[in-house]
């Protein structure tokens, strides 16, 4: 599974023409124009337990605003778990205990007064497998807006969201069609449209391309770059080439023998891939484990 994804992505990278030893780099925002604005998400000393098994150990990092941040690491390193801490999706699993703080715009989303539903409105999410509702394309996009009491022009919002997700031209003539009738890549873009229709500030993406073919993957990756001008994007990926292609900053996570996932290194993406500071990061990105 892991091997397949990586191989596919390598090929698509090679197809794009700028392959260097299997890893493709694209010019990214360099350190110079790193944003001066405060970070979008500040994660402070977060630890998490599933029952008695600890899964995250004391993770702290700042997610920069209006950038793509990638979380990479081998299976079981806790990268998806960390992602789901940022919109409190972990709250839905029985027996999960979380310590530490996650600040968005200076507010702790785990604060006593905070409703998780409100957090998830501000922090959207796109999942590993495309999961459109068994409803029409239109209703899929409008769902979150209706739930959250959108007051404006719904048709306009649906169109705008689909345009932002680069899907409008393909579906504008059959918005009544079931979302399930679309291809896998289209479904995933529909899910992105659904997420941005509630006007979130942050969009979390949990291996959004792992179920897609290389061409569909390419489109989603392009989309991530476009969306980064308006949203803060955090993407979990198995695929190092993808992280290298789309992200500005990369966090490398690793679980030790105790199965507790920890943050090993968090740096500009170029740095992580060209000149990693930690020996384990280097081992991982050169394919020696994971």
């Amino acid at each position: 599974m892991v091997g397949d994804t990586e191989r596919t992505a390598t090929q698509s990278g090679a197809g794009a023409g700028t392959a260097t030893a299997g890893v493709t780099f694209q010019p990214q925002a360099s350190e110079d124009d790193a944003p001066a604005s405060p970070p979008a998400v500040e994660i402070r000393n977060v630890s998490l337990w599933y029952g008695s098994q600890q899964a995250l150990g004391n993770v702290s990092l700042d997610i920069p605003r209006n950038r793509v941040t990638a979380l990479i690491g081998p299976s079981g390193c806790g990268k998806s778990t960390l992602l789901r801490c940022m919109n409190r999706m972990n709250d839905l699993i029985d027996g999960v205990r979380i310590e530490g703080e996650v600040f968005i715009d200076g507010e702790d989303i785990y604060g006593a007064e905070v409703d998780p539903s409100d957090v998830r409105r501000v922090v959207g999410m796109v999942f590993q497998r495309p999961n459109p509702f068994p409803k029409s394309i239109y209703d899929n996009v409008a769902f979150g807006a209706r739930i959250n009491g959108y007051k404006g022009d719904m048709d306009g919002l649906v169109e705008e969201s689909l345009r932002r997700a680069a899907l409008w031209d393909e579906v504008k003539d059959d918005l009544k069609k079931s979302g399930l009738a679309l291809s896998g890549g289209q479904q995933q873009r529909l899910c992105i449209a659904r997420a941005i229709a509630v006007n979130p500030e942050i969009v979390l993406m949990d291996e959004p391309c792992s179920a897609l073919d290389p061409i569909a993957t390419q489109r989603i990756e392009d989309l991530m770059q476009d969306l980064a001008s308006d949203y803060t994007i955090v993407v979990v990926t198995h695929n190092m080439q993808q992280a290298a292609r789309v992200s500005h900053r990369t966090a490398f996570m690793l679980a030790g023998d105790d199965l507790v996932g920890r943050l090993i290194e968090f740096e500009d993406t170029d740095r992580i891939f060209l000149n990693p500071g930690d020996e384990r990061t280097e081992q991982y990105i050169t394919g020696r484990f994971g």
């Binding site: 539903s117 705008e160 308006d230």
Partner: peptide
């Protein structure tokens, strides 16, 4: 987020406590 020029935070009235 300036995703939709016309859409702002104020376009949504979630009324969460009522929904809960």
């Amino acid at each position: 987020a300036a995703g939709h020029p016309t859409v702002t935070r104020d376009s949504y009235v979630p009324r969460l406590s009522f929904r809960q």
